Computed example of a mutant assay.
Amino acid sequence: MSRRPEAGRLPRFSPAERWAHRTTALLMGVCVLTAASLYLPMLAELVGRRALVVTVHKWSGVLLPVPVLVGLGSRALRADLGLLNRFGPYDTQWLRAALRRDRRPGSRPAHKFNAGQKLYASWTAGAVLVMLGTGLMMWFTHLTPLRWRTGATFIHDWLALTLGIVLVGHITMAMGDPEARRGLRTGSVSRTWAEREHPLWRPREKSPR
Results as ranks from 00 to 15, higher is better:
115 A>K: 00
164 G>A: 11
39 Y>W: 08
95 L>H: 01
89 P>H: 09
79 A>N: 13
77 L>R: 02
65 P>H: 05
152 A>Q: 01
163 L>Q: 02
136 L>M: 08
63 L>Y: 01
103 R>D: 14
159 L>P: 11
62 V>F: 12
139 W>Y: 13
106 G>V: 04
32 V>H: 05
80 D>Y: 07
120 Y>T: 13
60 S>P: 12
129 L>V: 14
158 W>T: 13
92 T>V: 11
53 V>M: 08
116 G>W: 08
52 L>E: 13
63 L>F: 05
57 H>F: 05
119 L>G: 04
152 A>F: 01
99 L>G: 02
67 P>V: 05
129 L>M: 13
79 A>Q: 07
151 G>N: 03
132 L>N: 01
124 T>D: 12
66 V>F: 01
34 T>S: 15
128 V>K: 00
123 W>H: 07
133 G>T: 01
101 R>A: 08
149 R>T: 10
80 D>E: 10
110 A>H: 15
147 R>W: 15
130 V>F: 04
31 C>R: 00
134 T>M: 00
36 A>G: 15
131 M>W: 01
73 G>P: 03
138 M>R: 03
135 G>P: 00
76 A>M: 03
85 N>P: 00
37 S>T: 12
116 G>A: 05
150 T>Q: 07
45 E>Q: 12
73 G>Y: 03
55 T>I: 05
157 D>H: 09
36 A>M: 14
152 A>N: 02
78 R>I: 09
84 L>H: 00
